[in-house]
Simulated scan of single mutants.
Amino acid sequence: MHGASTSRAVAIFSVLAAACAREAPLVSRSPGAPRSVVVRNVRVFDAPRATLAEGLRDVLVRDGRIDAVGPPGLPARDILEIDGRGGTLLPGLVDVHTHTGSSSYPPWRVVFPDVAENLAAFLYAGVTTVLDLGNLTPEVFRERSRVATGAHLGPRLYAAGPVFTAPGGHPAEVLRAWLPWYLRWYVLPRATREVAAPEDARRAIEALLPERPDVLKLAIDAGTGKVPCLARETIAAITAAGHAAGVRSIAHIGSSTEAIDAVR
């Protein structure tokens, strides 16, 4: 009996330990983390000249902005110091085509994405600004606000919201083909705006503008020729409505012919 009780206790402890165990986060921010820091003894990447500056430098960041770059020993009183030990200091990287609400798995493997983990992975890799070119709406705009206010930790997030496409066009045809029925009804109307005519497009943009999209995303891709594609008149209506509101358009294209349609 004693042996059985001991075995049960060990088993219960193991289950509890497994339930409580969590992987360490990729990135973290302690409460009250300073916005000012001096990074000493680093090689500085000179982006305008696409080269490394000669010798080691100190870089002073004050209130989140680069305040000074100078030789080692740069004065910085009462500011957190980090010794770069001769490493190379790069500016934050920018990813101009992301889908922060997606996963890295192929579309036929249904996995619920972890947006917080995706955003943390960007920061871990040195990416400090991202442009999301197609995501669930309005949730992506809510996440943009949470990151901007510091409620969530992530790179600076710009977002298009839904993808404008023809009825049955890309990516709607992929989502319909691969998503299970219990997700299809929810995802499609939030990830896409399927517009059949210029007036449909103008109404959809008018409804989207209160969310303040940073850009409009158009899908102009007929694939092998069997996928419906936005007509030129509808493309023109989308871009004109966006320009009238001060919002630029970005097009996904699949061929040189579609690229020409996009810029006409």
Results as ranks from 00 to 15, higher is better:
Leu136Ala: 10
Ile260Thr: 10
Ala9Asn: 15
Phe112Leu: 11
Ala125Leu: 14
Leu89Arg: 02
Ala53Cys: 06
Glu139Val: 14
Ser28Glu: 01
Ala204Glu: 06
Cys20Ser: 06
Val94Pro: 15
Val140Ala: 02
Ala219Cys: 11
Ala236Val: 02
Pro75Leu: 08
Arg65Thr: 13
Gly86Pro: 13
Arg62His: 10
Leu89Asp: 12
Asp95Leu: 09
Ser28Tyr: 00
Arg176Gln: 11
Glu199Gln: 15
Thr165Cys: 11
Arg146Asp: 09
Gly225Asn: 07
Pro25Ser: 04
Gly126Cys: 03
His243Leu: 12
Val187Lys: 05
Arg264Cys: 14
Ala53His: 13
Ala177Glu: 12
Val247Met: 10
Glu211Tyr: 15
Thr149Met: 04
Pro180Thr: 12
Ala172Cys: 11
Ile260Glu: 08
Arg109Trp: 08
Ala21Gly: 14
Arg8Tyr: 09
Pro72Ala: 07
Ala47Met: 15
Ala172Gly: 04
Tyr105Val: 09
Leu80Thr: 00
Val38Met: 13
Ser36Lys: 01
Ala120Asp: 11
Ala196Phe: 00
Val61Arg: 01
Arg184Leu: 13
Val37Cys: 01
Asp221His: 10
Gly254Thr: 08
Glu233Phe: 09
Asp83Tyr: 08
Ala231Trp: 06
Ala196Gly: 07
Val115Met: 12
Val44Glu: 08
Asp132Asn: 04
Thr149Trp: 02
Arg203Gln: 07
Ala197His: 07
Asp78Arg: 04
Val195Lys: 03
Arg57Thr: 14
Leu209Lys: 09
Ala196His: 02
Asp114Leu: 04
Arg22Asp: 12
